[in-house]
């Protein structure tokens, strides 16, 4: 039974319910609730939502440099003269770049791969923005590449592959430290993390 069956003669309602239902994490009930909320809300509120959705599709593109999502090409970060162009931080998703930006401690540029190598889903380098990365390294003077992929199986596979292809170049390749999280608990740390935390210990100063 589709949602259409419930609303004979109210096609726009059924259409909206079905469209919302396609979104991730939205079940049939949530789709119905959201639709009724929109029916009751002010017209300009609904218009603003519709325009925001359209704007995302029409005005957002990938930055030709870092492949991040952006409205202007190159993006605001890539065209900012105060950023250090010789350091590239490689992340899996645009949201990861955003998280790094929030630290305000990184002054270099990013490169977004839009995914990670995943043998289990047969996602390899050619499905990601690797060629763009290599072209960028050919064009620009980069002295350090920071591998900031997630510390899980897929992120690690990606870092291993990147390390392999960057090795022959005269570029320093670093990987983000793995260790104990702030607010964490030693007792619950796994061996791998603890061992890495030991290796990466530093002097108190």
């Amino acid at each position: 039974m589709t949602t259409r069956d419930f609303f004979p003669g109210a096609e726009p309602v059924s259409n909206l319910i079905e469209a919302l239902h396609k979104l991730p994490g939205i079940g049939p009930k949530s789709a119905q609730r959201l639709t009724y909320h929109l029916i009751r809300s002010q017209a300009d509120e609904a218009r603003a939502l519709a325009e925001a959705v359209l704007a995302v599709k029409e005005r957002i593109q990938f930055c030709s440099e870092c492949q991040n999502i952006t409205e202007t090409n190159p993006c605001a970060l890539c065209s900012d003269p105060s950023r250090d162009r010789s350091i590239l931080c490689i992340v899996e998703e645009p949201l990861d770049a955003l998280a790094m930006e929030r630290t305000r401690s990184f002054k270099g540029l990013y490169h977004v791969l839009h995914g990670a190598i995943n043998p289990m889903n047969n996602i390899g380098p050619e499905n990601l923005k690797f060629t763009e990365l290599l072209n960028r390294l050919d064009k620009n003077q980069v002295r350090e590449v920071i591998l900031a992929t997630n510390p899980n199986m897929e992120g690690n596979a990606t870092a291993l592959y990147l390390h392999k292809i960057l090795e022959p170049r005269d570029i320093r390749v670093t990987r983000l430290a793995t260790g104990l999280p702030m607010g964490g608990d030693l007792e619950y740390a796994d061996e791998l993390t603890l061992a890495r935390a030991f290796e990466g210990r530093r002097d108190m100063s």
């Binding site: 043998p119 289990m120 889903n121 047969n122 996602i123 390899g124 380098p125 050619e126 290599l134 050919d138 392999k164 292809i165 022959p168």
Partner: peptide, 27 residues
């Protein structure tokens, strides 16, 4: 159906040789 990681393994070997050629060319 396909075993996806088997497909990945096959491709991995071919990338290795391709990447090798690419690197030699760029050098």
């Amino acid at each position: 159906g396909e075993v996806r990681s088997a497909g990945f393994l096959k491709r991995l070997d071919s990338w290795k040789s391709k990447e090798h050629q690419r690197l030699r060319k760029s050098l």
